[in-house]
Design a protein around this nucleic acid. Structure first.
Lengths: 237, 237
DNA sequence: CCAAAAAAGATTGCATACGATTTTTGCGGG
DNA sequence: CCCGCAAAAATCGTATGCAATCTTTTTTGG
């Protein structure tokens, strides 16, 4: 998979920052695996694709590098991140630490409008699971992450929300690399259970369910070091 | 306080990234309040001060903007962040959620070498408290934050560690703006108690002490909206 | 004398240029 | 046929220039 094979919707060049728009496009592409871990993202190529100068492309790549989605090597360029098993463990350890707390905070702030938003979210999730094809699979991955992001937004802490965005994106990379069954379809029912607890204002239960949910996601990974992880890394793939 | 009044140690222009070195210098200056919240950081000025082009200065400012230490407005420039009371609350809510867990993780990984490092850290902290003068006060603030960063590094999760760096830096800004007594000197003894619990491997106690410690820091803040916060913001001060 | 408009000045956003470093290619020797 | 080495190409790091935007000062009309 090469970045040159990708097509990106035209950037709605408003007064908004163009670099940010490019970052969002690239992040989406990374998160739903249209760009594989290890793919090289050269400044020139990105710039050409989005029709901006290298200056702007570089800024976008720098942003992604801060989020941990891209790794940059001096004088060599930027690559879609290739998280190690250790890094993967740390991503999930972070989520185990934070998300139960987020669930508690969210439980105390749920409004009927939130419930409606969650229901719509879960419906969409279910639709993509029912569908077939790689495109639906990608959408399913994204929707699954969006559930957690929606929860974070309900919790009402912008700082934690941004951090969760980073963690969810990185999780997606990790699952792409180490996932056994792609997406655990049991995740959907767990999401529904969590929503039910949230609806009832049962924060303790929501928190406990969330913790188990994260454990289940991580349990679906195969984090044993593969034959020659150094080699893998060296081969950039 | 103006950025032009500042002096910065020469950047050890190794093969290391120069933008990163500048970011570190600026971050230190912001964290120990040599640069006041609201101070304008123009690209040209920063570039001149560090003897680099605007390109590099701009990259450094972008990094700080990601960490939340600098706020950038399009076509207007970068300013040392001026966190709102709400933002301040969110910073401490995040710390309350994360640091007790970090304490638990650290308690399980303490080695004699770590204990030595902590003792040295606390000694330094104590020295600055004893000293007088604004310079010692600044060092005290920094040392107080460094305790928390040391703890995060012992916990062994790089992702959380980076996040803690952001939170500690932002806390420093918040304390600068809303702190009643500058630095609560009782913080030092609380740090010592936490270390004691860590040394004994009493993770539960370390976690509980940490939670109270954060509560105490936040309790020392005056987060009531001041007369005309909008005005304050509008006047950039 | 004051308010609004206009001009001048400063600063940012972005593109481009050039030297430095890395990677690839071409070629001769083993 | 394969390997090492030098030249060429590609890519990055950084400085600089120009247009666009914002700020400040000056001018002008009431």
């Amino acid at each position: 998979m090469n970045i040159a094979d990708q097509t990106f919707p035209a950037v709605d060049n408003a007064n908004e920052d163009r670099a940010q728009a490019i970052r969002d496009q690239l992040r989406d592409a990374i998160v739903d695996r249209r760009l594989a871990p290890g793919t090289k993202l050269s400044e020139g190529e990105v710039g050409t694709l989005f029709d901006v100068s290298r200056t702007v492309a570089r800024a976008a790549l720098q942003m992604l590098s801060f989020e941990g989605l891209v790794r940059t090597e001096r004088n060599r360029g930027a690559f879609v991140a290739n998280p190690s098993p250790e890094e993967a463990r740390q991503v999930f350890a972070s989520r185990r630490l934070i998300e139960p707390g987020i669930a508690i905070a969210a439980a105390g702030r749920m409004t009927p409008a939130h419930v409606v938003a969650f229901k719509a979210q879960l419906d969409e999730e279910g639709r993509f699971i029912a569908e077939r094809g790689p495109s639906a699979r990608r959408s399913e991955i994204k929707a699954s992450g969006d559930f957690h992001l929606l929860l974070a937004s309900v919790a009402g802490n912008v700082i934690l929300q941004r951090f969760m965005e980073e963690l969810v994106a990185r999780s997606s990379l990790v699952i792409a690399l180490y996932g056994r069954s792609g997406v655990s379809s049991c995740g959907h029912s767990e999401h529904m259970n969590i929503l039910e607890a949230l609806e009832n204002g049962n924060s303790e239960r929501a928190s406990a369910l969330m913790l188990h949910h994260i454990d289940h996601i991580e349990a679906d990974l195969d984090l044993r070091v593969r034959s020659g992880p150094a080699l893998r890394q060296a081969l950039e793939f």
